[in-house]
Design a protein around this nucleic acid. Sequence first.
DNA 1: AACACCGTTCACAATTTCGTGAAAGGCGCG
DNA 2: CGCGCCTTTCACGAAATTGTGAACGGTGTT
Lengths: 172, 172
Amino acid sequence: MDSDVDGERIALLRFVERFALALREAGMAPMPARVIAFALADDADRYTAGELARGLGVSPAAISGAVRYLVHVGLLLREREPGTRSDLYVLDDRDLWSRYMTAELALLQRFVQILDGGIEAIGLDRPGGRRLAETRDFMAFLDEEMGEAVRRWPAERDRRAAARSAEASPAG
Amino acid sequence: MDSDVDGERIALLRFVERFALALREAGMAPMPARVIAFALADDADRYTAGELARGLGVSPAAISGAVRYLVHVGLLLREREPGTRSDLYVLDDRDLWSRYMTAELALLQRFVQILDGGIEAIGLDRPGGRRLAETRDFMAFLDEEMGEAVRRWPAERDRRAAARSAEASPAG
DNA sequence: AACACCGTTCACAATTTCGTGAAAGGCGCG
DNA sequence: CGCGCCTTTCACGAAATTGTGAACGGTGTT
């Protein structure tokens, strides 16, 4: 029955839309969200821009900006195979999310800077200034904690992957 | 000299815009971002909708949806003083950010659910499925780590506040 | 050296989102 | 019980964003 590849494809695209929707709620633009969702869920580990466009059924033009953003935030790597005329967008899945979170943490540091400016302008002798200071402390704390978590992730990932394969083939 | 209150007000609004811009990059809509930035930085610890509208120089209509969202995510509390006809929006600054983060963590749990569905549909025997599983593990890990960090925050906040006042009046 | 192919950029059309103004709804007060 | 104030809701106009189609640029191929 050829394991109807068409049904699998629409199931894949359905998941892509669901996942992309959640990514959008987390602040990502629609097209980058779709592209990274598709790249993750489909089976290749490297795609040309054209493959992404055909796979998602969107125009190549829409891919361009999306992959630029995704490369910028570290979710895709751009590579070039010698002797070919198209860039390859690579999922470096070992450190994918670490890199992404590291980029996200920069936003937290920006919060801290902006708040420092506000505290200086308002002064710690005012209720507003004290609240900004407390907010600043929280952002800095979160930045430290998440930075440490990201650093722990590689080891944790291996442990969970091992647990998953142990569960798949329990040896005792 | 009356410490020109007008200059202070525009300085305040300038900070509000800067802070709100960063909040927008983190995914918040413009008006809620401005409202919470203003509420934090100004000196009152409770505001009516009208005060927020006048303070920001926007229409009361714009406040309505913004405060509904902010109450929903836990950044503002709605209160009602007996014998008055307007709700009060209160900054409960002691647990403000803890509550907010807790709400944010729900999004991470949703990621995990969506990814579980995708893994089931695609299967762990395919590269895409394995990548989704790794992504799922990361989201779950981050959820746990951030949850713990949020739980540690109250104690950490007090420690940092104490350090700040010690710095302000060094006693030895 | 001209061709063919692929990705990017540009300008446009369509959708969505945002904030305002006007009308409606509650609630306390006279 | 009616009035007045404050908030909310609704519909609209404006502005920003999104994705497409067409032209452009670069690169390998014949």
